[in-house]
Structure formats: structure tokens, C-alpha cells
Amino acid sequence: MTKKMINQDKPKLARRQFLVGAGAGVAAAGAALVVSKQPEMAEQAAATGTEKKSKGYQLSEHVKTYYRTLLV
């Protein structure tokens, strides 16, 4: 290899290392954000889960009226 070839490889390697480091930093920041939001989301889910319990499908008068309109 000549000196010219060796010098050309160094900037490429430095850019690659920078991009790898930046990518790892972004991934770590994203993981930290997700981990910090999980307790809040769990508390919200617990609060909304106890407030309203669904009884499932119920056939009421307004539903019966709607079904009658479909029979036309």
C-alpha cells in the first residue's frame, strides 16, 4: 500500500466510527425514554381499568330499532 492509500482510509474510518457512535447514542436515549415512561403508563392503565368495566354486547331498544331499519 502506498502512503496515499493509507491516508485515504483514515477519514472514512473516522466517519464510520462517528456514525456508529451516534447511532448507539440515539438507541440508548430511546431505550432510556421508553423505560422512564413505563411506570406512568402502568399507573394510567390501572386507573382506567378500575373505573369502567365493560359488560359486553347488550341488546337494547335503540339497537333493536336500528336492526328493524335494516330490514327494509
Rank of each mutant, 00 (worst) to 15 (best):
L59E: 11
R15C: 03
A42K: 14
K53Y: 10
L13Q: 10
K53D: 13
Q58D: 03
K4P: 02
A45Y: 02
A28D: 05
V63D: 08
F18Q: 06
V35W: 14
A47E: 10
G49E: 10
Y66T: 04
V72C: 03
A45S: 14
T48A: 12
D9H: 04
A22R: 09
E51C: 10
V20L: 14
M5P: 04
V35F: 06
A27K: 09
D9K: 07
K37R: 03
Q17V: 13
M1Q: 07
A45I: 14
T50P: 04
K4N: 07
L71M: 05
K53P: 09
T65P: 01
H62M: 05
G21E: 07
V20T: 15
G23Y: 01
Q8N: 08
Q17Y: 07
A14D: 12
S60W: 02
G56F: 01
R16V: 07
R68H: 00
Q44M: 12
S36N: 12
P11Q: 01
K10A: 15
E43Q: 14
T2Y: 00
L59Q: 05
Q17D: 13
A27H: 02
V26F: 05
T2R: 05
T65C: 00
L19R: 13
A29I: 06
Y67M: 07
K64P: 00
M41L: 15
Q17M: 15
M1D: 05
V20K: 13
T65S: 05
G30Q: 08
Y67D: 03
L59R: 08
K55A: 15
K12S: 05
V35L: 13
Q58Y: 00
I6C: 04
A42I: 11
H62L: 09
K37Y: 05
T48C: 10
R16Y: 10
A27D: 09
M1R: 06
G21A: 12
A47D: 10
